[in-house]
């Protein structure tokens, strides 16, 4: 494992911790898209089905369990916590699941390398992860007064994607059999989706102003 991959994983973990702290700390999930969170949970479930059959390292197994556990907790809090669920912007979070899930499923069926259930679901999870942030970005655009934690959450998540690209470039040059156009394409698409957000994030940081995305 290289330093980019480790740093990427840590950013990913940190983004989830920041989100959980925001939700449980201030008892509010304002500005957070439940749809994106549910899609991420679906991504983790479909990707980590191999958790008991394909042992890579203790690190991988523990991280998989942590990602599954924390994303389930976030969805649970937003859906069922007596106080927190009242702060969810349901009317604003209108992105259609099917718009993201259906193309991912079709692409997974069309392009999976081998046709086993695990492999097709793994491929599906790669496609879905690339676009799962979209409901969140749309919601951010509609939210006035984005709080710092929400902005930082999306920023950390974007950093994780950026670092994974560096990890792939590193692996491409250091590992003989590391060829995966699928993961590359999806990763780049996913990172491009964040570009607009990054632009406004840095702008607000530079001018010391609150983050706001133009509608």
């Amino acid at each position: 494992m290289n330093v980019f991959r480790l740093a990427g994983d840590m950013m990913h973990l940190l983004s989830i911790v920041v989100l959980l702290l925001k939700i449980t700390g201030i008892k509010s999930c304002r500005g957070i898209s439940l749809k994106t969170q549910e899609l991420y949970l679906l991504v983790f479930i479909t990707r980590y089905l191999d958790i008991f059959t394909n042992f890579v390292s203790l690190y991988n197994t523990v991280m998989k369990l942590v990602f599954l556990g924390t994303s389930s907790a976030i969805v649970y809090y937003m859906r069922y916590d007596r106080i927190i669920k009242l702060t969810y912007d349901k009317e604003q979070d209108t992105f259609k699941y099917l718009l993201l899930v259906a193309p991912s499923a079709v692409l997974a069926l069309a392009t999976s390398h081998v046709y086993t259930v695990l492999e097709v679901l793994w491929t599906f999870s790669i496609y879905l992860e690339a676009v799962a942030i979209m409901p969140q970005l749309v919601l951010l655009q509609r939210t006035q007064n984005i709080d710092n934690l929400t902005g930082n959450y999306v920023f950390l998540l974007g950093s994780y994607r950026g670092l994974y690209i560096l990890n792939w470039i590193y692996r491409f040059f250091t590992e003989k059999h590391y060829r995966q156009w699928l993961v590359w394409t999806c990763g780049v698409v996913q990172t491009i989706i964040y570009c607009d957000f990054f632009y406004y994030y840095f702008l607000s940081w530079q001018n010391n102003e609150k983050l706001a995305l133009p509608a």
Binding site: M63, Q180, V183
Partner: peptide, 10 residues
């Protein structure tokens, strides 16, 4: 790696 995919990544 199976399928050339990054199955050892998260």
């Amino acid at each position: 790696i199976e399928g050339g995919g990054a199955h050892d990544e998260l």
